[in-house]
Amino acid sequence: MITAKSVSKSYGDALVVDDVTITLPARGITSIIGPNGAGKSTLLSMMARLVGMDAGHVTIDGLDVVTTPSEALARRLAILRQDNHMTARLTVHDLVTFGRYPYSRGRPTEEDAVHVARALDYLGLTDLSGRFLDELSGGQRQRAFVAMVLCQDTDYVLLDEPLNNLDMKHAASMMRLWRDACRDFGKTVVIVLHDINFASWYSDHIVAMRQGRICRQGTPDEIIRTDALRDIYDMQIDVREIGGRRVCLFYE
C-alpha cells in the first residue's frame, strides 16, 4: 500500500502539491489524472523519492520513502519516466540486467539471468537482446525499459506519463501490457495519464487532482462522468457508454 500523509511541495512561491493525504489501493492500475499543473507528476515523483517533499511523508508498505535506504526501496518500488535520454550506449540485454541491480549490485547471478531471460521473453525482446538501444524503434526501446522494470521484480511500479511520444498502437499495447503485468504478477501500477479515455478503459482506480489537491477518487464508473469531469477539468465532457465501458467525447 502506498500512503501519503499531508504531503506538500512548492517550487518557489508556487504551491504544487497542497497537503495531500491519500492511500492508493494495492494491486491493479491506479491512474492519476487532472489538468496541467495539478501536481500529478510531482506527487508521483515524491512517492518515488525523486523529489523531496516540503512537508508530510510517504510510506510504501509502511516504509518511509525518505528514511528507508534507497536500496531496500528499490526491491519494492520501481519508477519509469518517459524522458529516458541516456548517453551510454547499451544493449537491450545490458539494460534489462540493470533491473537486477537492487539484488546483485552489479554482479548478476544465475538467478538474475533467469529473471532477465524471463522479462525479455515476456516482452518479446529475446531476439533483440544483443541489439543496441539506439538501433531500436521507439516502441521497442520503450519495451526494453519496461522489461528492465519488470526484471526489478517490485510490487509497485510508478509510471510518469508513459504514453507520451507513443502512437495509438504502441500506447494501447503499453497499457495492455501493464494491465497484464498486474494480472500475471499481482503488481500495483500507478500511472500519471493525460488521456482520460485510456484512464477510463484500463484503470481499476482513478485519482483526480486539481490545483495541488486530490479532488476526487474512485472507480472509472465513479470518475468518468460528466459532472465529476466538470469538477476536475472545468469543461463540459460528454460521456458515452460503449460496450459497457465509458468513453469521453471532449471534441467540439
Binding site: A78, N84, Y101
Partner: peptide, 13 residues
Amino acid sequence: ALGRPQAISLGVD
C-alpha cells in the same frame, strides 16, 4: 549512467 531518475529507482544512494 542511466540518469538520475533511473539510478534512484534502482536503489543507488
